[in-house]
Computed example of a mutant assay.
Amino acid sequence: MARPKSEDKRNAILSAAVQVIEEQGLGAPTARIAKLAGVAEGTLFTYFDSKDALLNALYLTLKDELREALAPDFPHTENLRERALYLWTSYVDWGVANPHKRKVMLVLSASERITEQSRAVGMQAFADAGMLIADCIARGHLRDQSPAFASAIMGALAETTMDFIVREPRQRQKYLDAGFNSFWNAVTQS
Rank of each mutant, 00 (worst) to 15 (best):
L176F: 03
S50C: 05
A134S: 12
A97C: 07
R10M: 05
R167N: 09
S190R: 11
A129V: 06
H100Q: 13
R10W: 00
H100L: 07
V121I: 13
L157V: 15
K5T: 11
F164L: 15
V20L: 06
S182T: 15
S15D: 15
M154G: 15
Y175K: 07
V39R: 01
R119M: 05
N79A: 13
T160W: 14
W184R: 10
W184Y: 12
L26N: 09
A28Y: 09
F183K: 07
K174Q: 08
L60W: 06
I114E: 02
G38M: 03
E159I: 09
A152V: 03
S15Y: 01
K51H: 08
T161M: 02
K63N: 15
C136M: 14
K63I: 03
A178V: 02
I153D: 07
A2W: 12
F183W: 07
L54K: 11
I137A: 05
E116C: 02
A178I: 04
L142Y: 11
R143C: 07
L87K: 04
F74R: 08
T188N: 02
M131V: 08
T61C: 04
Q145N: 10
H141C: 04
D135M: 09
H141G: 12
D163R: 13
D73L: 06
K35E: 13
A12N: 09
N98P: 04
T115F: 02
A28L: 10
V166M: 06
G179L: 02
A31L: 13
P29F: 14
N11W: 03
A40I: 02
Y86N: 08
S90W: 03
R83L: 05
A2G: 02
E65H: 09
S118D: 09
E23T: 11
A178P: 10
R143F: 01
D52Q: 15
Y175S: 08
A134L: 08
Y59K: 08
Y59P: 10
L176M: 15
H141K: 15
A129I: 00
K51V: 04
E82W: 02
K9V: 07
G25W: 04
A138W: 00
A57L: 03
L36Q: 15
Q117K: 09
R139D: 05
L142P: 07
A34V: 01
A178E: 11
R102Q: 11
G140I: 00
V121R: 13
A34C: 07
V96P: 15
S109H: 09
L62R: 13
S111M: 08
D64S: 14
I153N: 11
I13N: 14
K63Q: 14
Y47C: 06
M162G: 12
S111P: 09
M154C: 14
L132D: 12
L142V: 04
Q124P: 04
F45G: 02
T77Y: 10
E112K: 12
V20F: 06
D163I: 06
M131Y: 03
V187T: 12
A120S: 11
S50N: 06
D135H: 09
Y86F: 11
P72I: 00
R81H: 07
T46F: 11
D128S: 13
L70E: 12
Q24I: 01
R139F: 00
W184M: 01
P75Y: 06
L26K: 11
A186K: 06
Y86V: 00
R67A: 14
D73P: 00
